[in-house]
Amino acid sequence: MIPANFEYFAPKTIEEALQLLEQHGEDAKILSGGHSLIPVLKLRLASPGVVIDIGRIAELKAIKVDGSTISIGANATHAEIAANADLKTHCPLLAETAAQIGDQQVRNRGTIGGSLTHADPAADWPAAILALDAEIVARSSQGTRTIKAADFFLDLMTSAVESDEIVTEIRIAKPEQPAAAVYLKVPQSASGFAVIGVAAQLKVTNGKCEAASIGVTGLAPKAFRASSVEAALVGKTLDEAAINAASAKADAEADDAMEDIHASGDYRRHLARVFAKRAVLAAAAKA
């Protein structure tokens, strides 16, 4: 499988990349690690005339934890996020999710910015990004805007990133109770993509749930916040009955369920409920 031919640029700065993007417009695609775009090029699902490789822009790689904010550069690889000691302490959900993506080779090359922009409905990052209520920073030559995770995933393989924009950074407010979090998935056994993935970030005081945010990937054409589960948990003592009742609503926000040879829509809905329950139980146990 060989991609169609294209013109290639490897800018060293964001400004240079944005200028190239403005110049080539809809005909250009952004390449970072290449683990979303290159398979698409090889299958010729896309044949852009121009590929702009942002992989050499060093400033997009930084992972910073200071004060109340975590900032992850769009070019940070899954492996770098999985191994980052600050993230393990201040936001273990990120490191734990990164470690469950694909396999080591994929994690060594694939980037968080690329994966999010690609918006694969079975990708792992969306669940965690939603559960952490992250903001995605996108830049164009016109300026910078931040997009809330809840507004970022629009549809199957469609994110809110415009064709003249580059995702530069993911910003997350440090969770109040970092340890009370978990990402659980059912991996598709060949690709490792999530048949279902559920990320939960809780705040629990004396067994009582004070805050809950749950992200679900793999079920619907776009990842979503399981708001019904969250509403049913907040204010409750996290006993098994309360968690059962709440997690039964894990598919409530999914109007459509995806179906393929790996899992029917009904089975995916079932898995979402089961894994929401397991995720909340596991996160509560770590609180």
Partner: peptide, 10 residues
């Protein structure tokens, strides 16, 4: 790295 998913120019 999986070299089938990396461009030579990268």
């Amino acid at each position: 790295a999986k070299s089938c998913c990396v461009l030579a120019v990268q």
